[in-house]
Design a protein around this nucleic acid. Structure first.
Lengths: 149, 149
DNA sequence: CTAAAATAGTTAAACGCTTAACTAAATAGG
DNA sequence: CCTATTTAGTTAAGCGTTTAACTATTTTAG
């Protein structure tokens, strides 16, 4: 029952897990700082990017699946995006339950303006690894990810 | 201005960044599922573990620093932990601003009960990598982390 | 010694996210 | 056809987190 138990060095898997969590959190925070500096936020941009990737329009539930969040969350997030004019929405002609989410010209323009800077920021934060190391890291991550379902 | 711009394949650093974010999110979700299965949650446990690591008592601000969240957040999180009886608090004898957060016997018991299962869950999720790969991943993460300040 | 600055902690408002309960529309089976 | 089930989306409540503004105490410097 000694407290010591929780201080002892962890097994390698656990150490690696926490290193991932910690390092990723730092990387994400750095990336988020870029968005904040542009008076934006990452979650909203992620949605706009996903609509763009889908060709400019998409259904909320598909969007949720792609981003990996719940429909409820997407529902909530679309409200400010519409108010800001980055998207607009239209009902589906063949299925009254569905709602088409459409990237507006303004939304496209926004992405065009801020995505290059975001990529630069990320590259900057990753630059302590050379190409071979990035490749190695990427393949380890893929291996890890593949087994997680 | 074509939408295509956001669909094109990303540079290696960016791919790797997103792979980290994605894989880590999956790992964390799997770990969180363990806590939920015990009617607990990861954030609260993290605090209790940190108090234990500090030897059983700690100041809120130190705790915040160790965990990497704000003092405001710790302040809020301590309330339910105290109500649940996992911690109690005492004023600092030499500095009236400070507040000593103390792990209760119940808190210790809780950690004792649930930490082994957590470690097992994590190990289970990491087991697609062998020891050499874990070591490799860990050292890449350290290299990446070191340059992030 | 006292006034000013620094420090520890709290509170409030906002955000992104979840689960659970709900509404409305479409589909499927007797 | 009509009822029952499934599907798409919304709403509400709760959690962990942040920033900003605040209070109370301690430290510092003239």
């Amino acid at each position: 029952m000694t407290i010591q138990k929780y201080v002892t060095k962890q097994p390698l898997e656990v150490q690696t897990f926490f290193a991932m969590v910690d390092t990723t959190a730092h990387l994400v925070a750095a990336s988020e700082k870029y968005w904040v500096s542009k008076n934006l936020n990452g979650a909203r941009i992620r949605i706009l990017v996903e609509i763009a990737k889908a060709g400019g329009n998409i259904l909320p539930s598909v969007l949720a699946g792609r981003i990996g969040v719940t429909k409820a969350n997407i529902s909530a997030m679309l409200i400010p995006l519409e108010q800001l004019g980055y998207i607009h929405t239209a009902s589906h002609p063949e299925d009254g339950r569905k709602r088409r989410i459409i990237l507006s010209a303004e939304g496209e323009r926004l992405l065009h303006d801020v995505m290059p800077g975001n990529r630069e920021t990320i590259a900057e934060n990753m630059k302590s690894l050379d190409e071979e190391e990035l490749q190695q890291l990427l393949s380890l991550l893929h291996k890890l990810h593949k087994k997680l379902d």
